[in-house]
Computed example of a mutant assay.
Amino acid sequence: MVTVQEIKLALRMSSAVLDQEVQGTIAAAVLDLQSAGMPPGVDNALSDEAIRQYCKWRYDYMGKAAMYEHSYDRLKTVLALLPKEEVVGGG
């Protein structure tokens, strides 16, 4: 699964002050993906990218929140529709 450090790199953050908040945002993304139908325990490149897009959306990265929200929603739909054997442990 994507780490706090990977998200901070994607958001161009360097300070550790927001680490706990970023961890909470990652957890919220995972819960949102699961509520849409992604099976628990999914850890692959697609789920990692969805989490990155969620975080960029929530932190309004580069002032483009709407774009990241749309991207996240599309990835969420794909993850919810893939058969479990294709997403669990794939990554």
Rank of each mutant, 00 (worst) to 15 (best):
S14N: 12
S15M: 05
S15A: 15
A16M: 05
A16N: 14
A16V: 10
V17W: 05
L18I: 04
L18R: 09
L18C: 04
D19M: 02
D19W: 04
D19L: 07
D19P: 06
Q20N: 10
Q20T: 10
Q20Y: 05
E21H: 10
E21L: 11
E21F: 06
V22H: 04
Q23D: 14
G24I: 02
G24R: 09
T25C: 15
T25D: 14
I26G: 06
I26V: 09
A28M: 13
A28F: 03
A28Y: 03
A28T: 12
A29Q: 07
V30A: 04
L31P: 00
L31S: 15
L31C: 05
L31D: 15
D32Q: 09
D32H: 11
D32F: 00
D32V: 00
L33D: 06
L33F: 04
Q34G: 03
S35D: 15
S35I: 01
S35E: 15
A36N: 10
A36T: 03
G37F: 02
G37Q: 05
M38A: 13
M38Y: 05
M38F: 07
P39R: 15
G41D: 05
G41L: 08
D43K: 10
D43A: 14
D43Q: 09
D43Y: 03
N44C: 15
N44V: 07
N44Y: 08
N44D: 15
N44H: 07
A45G: 08
A45H: 10
D48E: 14
D48H: 10
D48C: 08
E49I: 00
E49Y: 06
E49K: 12
A50H: 05
A50V: 09
I51C: 09
R52Y: 04
R52E: 12
R52D: 01
Q53G: 01
Q53C: 08
Y54I: 06
Y54R: 01
Y54V: 02
C55I: 02
K56V: 01
K56N: 08
W57R: 07
W57T: 07
W57M: 14
R58A: 11
Y59P: 00
Y59F: 15
Y59A: 08
D60T: 04
D60F: 03
D60L: 00
D60A: 13
Y61L: 06
M62C: 01
G63L: 03
G63I: 03
K64L: 14
K64I: 00
K64F: 09
A65P: 01
A65R: 13
A65L: 03
A66N: 09
A66C: 00
M67A: 12
M67F: 14
M67G: 02
M67R: 14
Y68E: 07
E69Y: 06
E69F: 10
E69W: 03
E69P: 00
